Amino acid sequence: MNDASAAFTAAFGSEPTGRWAAPGRVNLIGEHTDYNDGFVLPFALPQRVVAAAALSDEPGWAVCSDFEPEPVAFTSTGLGAVEGWAAYVAGVVWALTDAGFDVPPARIALTSDVPVGAGVSSSAALESAVLTALADLGGLDLPVADRPALAQRAENVYVGAPTGIMDQSASIRCEEGRALFLDCRSLAVEQIPFDLAAAGLAILIINSNAPHQHVDGEYGARRKSCEEAARILGVPALRDVTPDALDEALGKLDDDVMRRRVRHIVTENQRVLDTVELLRAGRIRDIGPLMTASHASMRDDFEITVPEIDVAVEAALAAGAYGARMTGGGFGGCVLALIDAADADTTTAAVERAYAERSFTAPTAWMATPGPGATRLP
């Protein structure tokens, strides 16, 4: 990651006021439950987007990034015309303005080491870093608990990506050494202890490097199917279908695809609750089977995995992982494997061999520990 302060100086010829950072995230468990008013359990990655920023004497905003060193400038009258990566920045300005905030004119330089297209929410990290910087620079009266919804609105309405609230909540509200238990209906959060090192464990993140096909049409189709099922079942959201009532609910649905989508959401919500209970009790190893069951549900019922992802899960489990699952929206991205910390190299090697046998593009892997959410850097 290039130094954001140096990038700022190179682009704008002066020093930034400060630097603000926001992390990417992985979801330990709870996939596609967020837009069904359900439960999720993400944690923040060490990889972050850093925004070096300063107030501007000129009206409007100028931003440069690793993607484009030449600054992109826009004003409040031209907000609707911003495209590409800069749209995420313009979206944050728009969301703040639309919420009634007086957004300060600013110059921003962005650098990042969050993998793009890997399902670890690089876009939410960018939005969260920019939002945090603008809130501080402008002295905005914007409680931290209210910030994820504004960042989500930037992505949903301005950029046009139909994501749930989890990504921005994780990037803004996570704490070091903990997973964020988020109720996506009430937006209540609980910081769940997740001290992997103390248990001699690690989360190995395996980037499948498969062509990421998080196609809006596929994601949107599943969301629409869930919403239609909730309408047929007469509930506000699938979160309101309990496991005990699942069989009865499935009997009311004529479409087999819709039944499988519903089954995933209902069982996945319960897996999140079960995982939280185990972590509260300090039983980290015991969450492994829940992770693996979550993956099977995503593969068979929600149908959002790809061969590279499934092979990575199978190889990690065969190498001794306690559990493994895809994380993220699907159709590519990353796998999480819960392993003994000493087994990182052997697990990685097992996945690499399985990929080579199938002529897949080689995966990349790293160990992750839960990091902090958005913050101003020293």
Rank of each mutant, 00 (worst) to 15 (best):
N2K: 14
N2I: 07
A4H: 09
A7S: 15
A11V: 12
F12M: 13
W20C: 11
A22S: 10
P23H: 01
R25T: 00
N27G: 02
H32C: 13
Y35M: 08
D37H: 15
D37P: 10
F43S: 00
P46S: 06
P46A: 01
Q47W: 01
V49L: 10
V49H: 03
A51L: 13
A51I: 09
G60V: 03
W61S: 02
C64H: 01
C64F: 00
D66K: 03
E70A: 15
A73P: 02
A73W: 02
T75W: 06
G78Y: 09
G84H: 04
W85L: 05
L96Y: 14
V103I: 15
V103N: 11
I108D: 11
L110Q: 11
L110P: 05
S112D: 01
S123F: 05
A125P: 08
L126G: 10
L134T: 14
L134P: 11
D136L: 01
P143R: 06
P148T: 02
R153M: 11
Y158R: 10
G160I: 08
P162T: 06
T163H: 08
D167K: 00
C174K: 00
E176I: 02
L182Y: 03
A198S: 04
G200A: 00
L201I: 02
A202C: 04
I205M: 13
A210Y: 01
P211E: 12
S225Q: 12
S225V: 02
A229H: 08
G234W: 09
G234P: 10
T242Q: 12
P243K: 10
D255L: 04
D256F: 04
R259K: 15
R260A: 09
R261I: 04
H264K: 06
I284C: 05
M291D: 09
H295L: 12
R299T: 10
D300S: 06
D301E: 12
T305F: 07
V306N: 02
V335M: 10
A337W: 09
D340M: 03
A342G: 11
T347S: 13
R358P: 10
F360T: 09
T361I: 01
P370E: 00
P372E: 09
A374L: 00
A374Q: 06
